[in-house]
Design a protein around this nucleic acid. Sequence first.
DNA 1: TTCGCTGCATACGCTCCCGTATGGAGCCTT
DNA 2: AAGGCTCCATACGGGAGCGTATGCAGCGAA
Lengths: 228, 228
Amino acid sequence: MAPNDLSSSPVRQNLTAEAWAEAALEVMAGGGVDAVAVEPLARRLSVTKGSFYWHFPNREALIKAALELWEQHETVDVIEGLEDEPDPYQRIVNLFKRANSSYRAGRLYLALAAATDDVRVNEVVQRVSARRLAYLEKCYRALGMDASEAPLWATFAYATFIGNQQVHRDTPHKFPAGPKFREYFKLMLRTLIPRASVPLRPMGSDPIGPLAGAKGSDPSASRKTGSG
Amino acid sequence: MAPNDLSSSPVRQNLTAEAWAEAALEVMAGGGVDAVAVEPLARRLSVTKGSFYWHFPNREALIKAALELWEQHETVDVIEGLEDEPDPYQRIVNLFKRANSSYRAGRLYLALAAATDDVRVNEVVQRVSARRLAYLEKCYRALGMDASEAPLWATFAYATFIGNQQVHRDTPHKFPAGPKFREYFKLMLRTLIPRASVPLRPMGSDPIGPLAGAKGSDPSASRKTGSG
DNA sequence: TTCGCTGCATACGCTCCCGTATGGAGCCTT
DNA sequence: AAGGCTCCATACGGGAGCGTATGCAGCGAA
């Protein structure tokens, strides 16, 4: 007996706490931490508050869980996937590619970082930002820079990462798209990765690659690609 | 209960609508547009809602007025003060100095730009951002760049402006301060203003100047200023 | 079948905020 | 001094969201 098909029937959803946290991150990307409300989130998930208060003691716990989930996404998924690359130059290139491809993740960071008043958010954002900066500094040191130069270049490069996401979000039609983006990308690489001091690798041709997110991230890129 | 003992204290404040808008911008810098609430704002100004609804028809009008005030601050005060400088190189330098000095204004921009959901805010932010980009592009063209190069360099430089504010806010203790900031500043100038193509002016020594905001903007900078 | 646990629904009181209505004190005019 | 205008206080109704209490269906175990 009991041939209950849980997969097709919407009766039993069995929402996990992580599903609530993911949904919280979703709305955080649009309105920041203050946008996380229990009842609207429950409506969004087609349940009621009763479900929420079973998984979480209160709204505060949801925010905490969401931030922890975000920090884990940012560190484990992003940084750890880059350690394989042995060439420090290519590591920075990969960082650039990631920074410009994950449009949604960038929006989440910007939305979270904007909550200046919230102490909980600030701590997480600070850790994430500091980790990125430290990783970039390590890359620049691997390129041959000393301890006084590397932090400056790391800050410079990271500021450009973040700033690109900001400009891309604030004025999408002004941000380089399509072939112009490839030009822009190469310009940033030439400028932000000085290889004059210690030329570890020649790298003459094109180190960029397919640029996965450069097309799908900007919808406006399709209308003005008539440059042949 | 007729005689109120408020006679000695400032009974008559005569709050203007602009004062309300300024106060709204104040809280926007910390929590974005959603943080603008009438009653808390009234308590902040030591009045009641009765005052607010005399100057504004509703909360929406306050937000509209605050955004208009902000846009005016951003365009009139910031851009117009730079047109005097004839040298395009020095104009960009001045832009850098402003971007790194007005810490509070930077926070306001970041907080406003984070409200992705709000259409009213997006329009204003887009105009402000586009104006800055256009101005920077004009500067680069004045340096001798053609119409294909200048937008890329303008975007590059502007992204670095914004990114610096973001990094400075998110990880203040990691951002270069004091003498390191001067180094960082010169590094950005060298990198972001290519003068190799058309050297309009020699500019040998130090074009930076006092850097007014570099000290007061970062509280952590006071502990490492061992030169005085 | 009965029991007990899980996962969620329903209902309620509370707080905060918005917007309106109304009154009233101060000041200015005539 | 009497009326009118300005600016704000007070009081009220309504809605949205938080947290709690309680009910209730499903499912496994005995």
